[in-house]
Write a protein that binds this DNA or RNA. Sequence first.
RNA 1: GCGAGGGUAGCCAAGCCGGGAAACGGCGGCGGACUCAAGAUCCGCUCCCGUAGGGGUCCAAGGGUUCAAAUCCCUUCCCUCGCACCA
Length: 918
Amino acid sequence: MAKGSQRTMARRGTYASQAVKEYWQYVWDREDAYELADAENPTYVLGMFPYTSGTLHMGHVRNYAITDAYARYRRMCGDDVLHPMGWDAFGLPAENAAYERYTDPESWTEACIAQMREDMADMGFGYDWSREITTCRPDYYRWNQWFFREFHEAGLVEYKAAEVNWCPDCETVLADAQVQEPDPGTGDGDGIGEAPAADTDAGPDTDAGVDADVGPDAHDHAGVCWRCETPVGRRELDQWFFTITDYAEELLAGLDDLDGWPDSVREIQRNWIGRREGARVTFEVEGHGDVDVFTTRLDTICGATYLAVSPGHDLAAALAAKDESVARYVDAARASAHGGMSGVETDATAVNPVTGEELPVYVAAYVLEDVGTGAVMGVPAHNERDHSFAMEQDLPLRQVVEPVDGSADGLPGEPYTDAGMLVDSGDYDGLASSAARERLLSDLAAAEPDVTYRLRDWLISRQRYWGTPIPVVHCEECGPVLVPEADLPVELPEFVQTTGNPLEDIDSFVETECPECGRPAERETDTMDTFVDSSWYFLRYLSPDLDTAPFDQEVAGEWLPVDVYVGGEEHAVLHLLYIRFFTRALADLGLVDVQEPVERLVNQGTVLYDGTKMSKSKGNVVNPHEYGAETTRLFVLSAAHPERDFEWTARAVSSSYDLQQTLHGLVESFVERAGVREEREPHDEYVAREIDRTIAAATADYERFRFHQAVTEIRQLAALLGQYRDYDTPHEAVYRRGLGTLTRLVAPLTPYLGEEMWNLLRGEGLVAHADWPTPERDVADYDVERRLVRTLREDVRDIFDVANIENADEIEITVAPDWMYRAHEVARSADEGDALVGQILEDDAVPAGEDAQAYAEELLERRQELERMLDADAEYGLLDRAAWLLSDEFDAAVTVRRADGDDGAEKARPGKPAVHIR
RNA sequence: GCGAGGGUAGCCAAGCCGGGAAACGGCGGCGGACUCAAGAUCCGCUCCCGUAGGGGUCCAAGGGUUCAAAUCCCUUCCCUCGCACCA
């Protein structure tokens, strides 16, 4: 058949996914295609559920395209797959939206959910919607309250005063993310002025609350309120905490075994937990009892020239009570987040437990209340901050450590902070730092080994409406009392527009009676951090309708942990630490029997536009539907490795569109084919084997989440099948199998197209439930085989080009004589010391003669670099099957033959046949 | 400062874990087929030299290990991100 005519035929139809989406959505729905009923141990594939911000953005699409492709792949492999979706529906932005639009958070959130669910359906994501969960509904958040009770009972809940960011105008605490830099004029468009959640990536949101209070950066801000630009102050409030620090050691140690997690996340968590080994040293302060300090440099204790406590320290309060100037300083320092190297000397003195010296006691802002013990021994010679403070306050330096190698130590201008050898330390002189630390610990009654963590307890109180009410009643007599389990859930009252916390204004909510003594009492009006909601949602999916427990323990025992969890890396320390904490806490409560919630974690990269992350505030957002949902989905999967960032370009997107058209066109033209061929020829065999090779390669790519590589395989097979179709009337079974393979390989990436192609091919049932293709032949050598064919084609092209051949009648391919393969094999398997040439020439398969002698010597020369080869038969067979590619390309007859002695095949070698063009 | 991850042809980007092809694929560019033409589609080329498959140089820079390195090791430079008044 002439080449052109079929090619034009192939262009007949155009695949328009818009038109077919509704149909397949209907069918999937009708068949409950993605529901999981009962299963022994399904593969649990989870994407971080989205904050309900209103519409699906590109970050979501990338996130969920990855889980969907993988879930579909596993399902086709025969696994039971749990692939649920839900809504992280509580949070500050809904409240703000309610203010701005004169509505209420619930209506707003429900509208967002409806929109996003529709967006997801449109993208073809196959979720088990029967397991949908929504965190703002009482049937979900009641279990937050239940957990609060359980944790309380287990001693994991504390109620204590905490210092937080406070906006006096809005009358609420602010999340760190809600505190702006004071100077917006030079803003480089990093999202300032946006609701924090408005353009975040998929996943549990970082919106409401003082999240950063689990860490240290709350101390860093001297900013203004993001909403009203009022300078943010500090305020001390009674707050509820989960004592995640009880698990600091476990959470840290557990990281070592999380092999399925990216190193980066594990490292970030290690940093965040920040374990420090050191010593707790007691200094006696005359008239005030003892003051403990924590130090990692006990070896420098003799260099202490002062003692400093934080403005929040008990000693500071005691001293302030007697001393006006101390009181003034403490007040000023506590009101401001930035104290610099300010401080105030007090009239107290502390005794150095080693030297017995009396040290002046300071109150200093640089000493943080919640770090270590809130007090430090000041060693200006060997600590950066102490040095700065001493310079500022004109305190003396005393060097007690010297560099061992006698190099310059930088003192007194700079502190010497490295380890070294002790001097001016009495009995400890001459010891190395580490040895001195050990000795001091054993000698000193006042010093004990101690460990501190950077990790803080998890402050879960939020002075917001749109969250889970903390199930506590405050009674004047009984103090804070837990709401009894039988009275749960404590439901949110109807929303009212107000400044500050709406719950405080709703008397019917606040006024209640004490569960213990029955007297009038007030409800807690704080709600929980939304990260509480997302800390256990993966458990709720297991039994979303259960109303007697948060989740079915038996099911959890079988189905956990989550096999694959996909989401953005921005949650490395918050959500991903909390979810681990919860799991461990629940394990200790006997509710689950895994220690870690997630086996394998994938952090998807971001989608860039003009080199920066797509975000509303930068105005560089591409709507996922702008280019067609399925094209977008295929593009985000094929553009790059899932963990890497990539650039959105319209051109690259259009090549994803083209690929869909190509695939659809191939199937369509097959269905409309004029004739078929039954007898099988060598080139059919080539295609058949290439199909196998593609299956093997693409399957490996899917296993490793290399969807972009799988797409490359699909492209290549599609190109080959197109060439095959145009070369000659295709063999019915081979071609059909090729198209069926292509269909199934692409179906997880483009589910609508997959169904459409499958349907055209009259595949059985849905492609979503079809069996993943398997190779029919051994494909262990596929890389060697592909390389041989590729090299040959390149060589032939080279010859045409270099020899300037316009037209050829015949291309003759001659494979090397059998004995050469044998000789090659002998050479490859020979040991280093063997007499190679002799060994080859003695081999029965190698004929005597000059040729053999020459080849043996050649092998000897290259013996180290010999590569694995096909054997003679395999090579001949492969080339015979591949000959059509040359014939098609050069429009010449191609013969493949084996060398038979005196035939001009001198150049042929194993892996490199002789080529003659006539 | 500490820690993590990167730097691959005009551009994007794979390969690096398990060393062996001037290095997948896409975009752009060039040439060709099909066409009145354009678009779409298809084929080839796209580091340098070469009239029979050859040679040279190459994966940030430099050094090392190895028969063999983009891949392993060391040093340097650059970029991105995380942590940092943490005692």
